[in-house]
Design a protein around this nucleic acid. Structure first.
Lengths: 196, 196, 196, 196
DNA sequence: GATGAATGAGTTTTCATTCAT
DNA sequence: AATGAATGAAAACTCATTCAT
């Protein structure tokens, strides 16, 4: 009987170490050596789980989207509609340390997406998912009677989604200029604006 | 002092080569050797202009903001206010090849900003500039009487700026999903929404 | 003691997997991992049969000589002398897929012989065996009266043996230039030449 | 003005270092590090001349054929025909230290030829050249009236060429069994046999 | 016996930077 | 000013071998 390890858990541990190195030192410093060290294992061992760095990065990026999606899906939305929507959309913003790390890692990988075909597919998938979430919110507002039926639904979806990602970007790159509070207030403001 | 001009021209040529490599192959592939090759000069010669790679990157990033700013400032805005604002704000969106390249390079460097203190200052400066531009637009709309005085100016500024950068992000990362046309329509839609 | 037979069978299976990897990808690619995979077993398991790679290689090389020797010895030579000799000597030429693989593997290991003392002994043994076979042929021809007694026996042996190995070499390295047919015809021609 | 070095000479120096390592320790030990050390330069410097190991090996192999060809072509053959031919053909045998090294290196690379497409072309070229040399000898013997016109020219060419390479092989792999003297005597014997 | 996880030394390769010319 | 040779550190990756289960 071989040594028993939970393969998936190990991979997640490594991916989280990867996040840490990326956040602390940047993607270029996310070398196999450093990641192994942070994950507290040997380079050779790490290679059991990810045979190439590319694989490791793909998994690490995917873990971000999995985490965010899971949180968004498993949350219990029971308040008033506007508040529920605010809560849902906040899942995609760097409103606390946990989310900030994920968003930052996501952004760094997104950047890499431009020239790494390996990561492109996931980026597209998530774009589509986010787009659907944005659609759900806009349609939810209209159907619940909060928002006017006269809204241009399609454009509102694009606007909302771009707003979310723009705020996430500002929140990550300029936390001192664009605080979490501003983020939340601006989001609430936008949702309310849709309801006039 | 023609020498200085030449010197500066050379540096710009090198920075543009850097952009090219970044867009084509990514920041990690932007090695001194490759950049020198694309700029059609020797490695040693390139070093006369930039003694370290870090300097070169800082200059290359700054060139993006200079270019964008110059274009925005030197443009002659003579149409109706809403159209002028649309035109101004479009300068910050990847609406054509030239701008797409600049935005993409900017995004890649922004990513690096998170861990490279050398680039952080410029990033902040540009954030502030953009914020001011956003403010100008919002205030312009109010002062011209197009937009209601009841708007929350401060939040509208954040909203507009985030929308712009979010759209730029989507336009760069997902040009097939978020076309230039959608970008322009969404922007126009937003500006109009402010005027209701 | 059926266990021992199984043990031996397993070793042969592993050696054949080694051959396959060598022929397909070369000696340098004949890693323990790859061989284990081709042999359809785990790395750890393979180690029960060969505790070091060196052992494995020595066994794999020896298997070639065993196979060739067995075939040569167990063959029933009942035709005319010249034909029998042609048949015998053909056992040492890559005249079909099976033999081609063996010769190729042999050649690869022979190359390694130059610097690997572990393999040298076997190489010498086989040289001597082959030399004896060559001697048998030459003496056979003379004794049977087919060849003249005036032949320089010793030189004829060297000549025949070198011819065989030279043809094997050409057959392996340049099958498109030196076909199996040419090989056979040349051999027959040589044997006949001895009989003039 | 850049530092002036004779690029080609440097490459040859490196290739010779490669030969040395191969002869002393085998192809698998012919690592870039070891070669650089023997060539008395840094690894990075070596990479100026050969950007990949594959390139280095291809050049090193080619250098063998160049050396042998040059020697064969520039030699002044002025004795009796049979002696001239003996001398020419001896160029392809490991009759002294210099030639032994070249032949050994050639053999090692030939082995690699089987799975390295990069080296295959050269191997074929040399095969053809050697074949032509063999043809020249056979035809020379016939034309000079030394050998009978009744010879099967085509088969004699194959036979001679295989004999040469077989003897080279034996001379390299088993110098204690197949001495230089035997080599020469066997060759002379063969040439004479053609003349009966 | 069997498994595969773990290790660390070793490999090729890349690269920013320095330096002699 | 310009060139490209030289360097050494560090990268990704490979691998035989060891070991716990």
């Amino acid at each position: 009987m071989p040594k028993i390890v939970d393969h998936e858990k190990r991979k997640i541990k490594i991916a989280e170490a990867t996040w840490k190195v990326i956040v602390d030192e940047g993607l270029e410093q996310a070398t196999v050596r450093k990641i192994a060290k942070v994950a507290d294992m040997s380079v050779g061992s790490l290679r059991h789980y990810f045979s190439t760095q590319s694989e490791l990065f793909a998994f690490s990026m995917k873990l971000v989207s999995d985490r965010v999606r899971n949180r968004a899906e498993n949350k219990y939305y029971d308040g008033p509609p506007l508040e529920s929507m605010q809560e849902l959309l906040s899942e995609f913003l760097p409103i606390d340390e946990e989310r900030r790390i994920e968003m930052e890692v996501w952004m760094v990988f997104s950047s890499k997406t431009l020239v790494d075909p390996n990561l492109k597919a996931l980026s597209q998938e998530v774009y589509d998912e986010m787009h659907r979430a944005s659609k759900m919110v806009v349609e939810g507002l209209i159907e619940s009677g909060l928002a006017s039926q006269a809204l241009n639904k399609s454009l509102e979806i694009e606007r909302l989604y771009a707003l979310i990602d723009g705020m996430a970007l500002h929140g990550i790159l300029h936390p001192d200029r664009f605080s979490v509070e501003k983020m939340q207030t601006t989001l609430k403001y936008h949702l309310k604006a849709l309801c006039n």
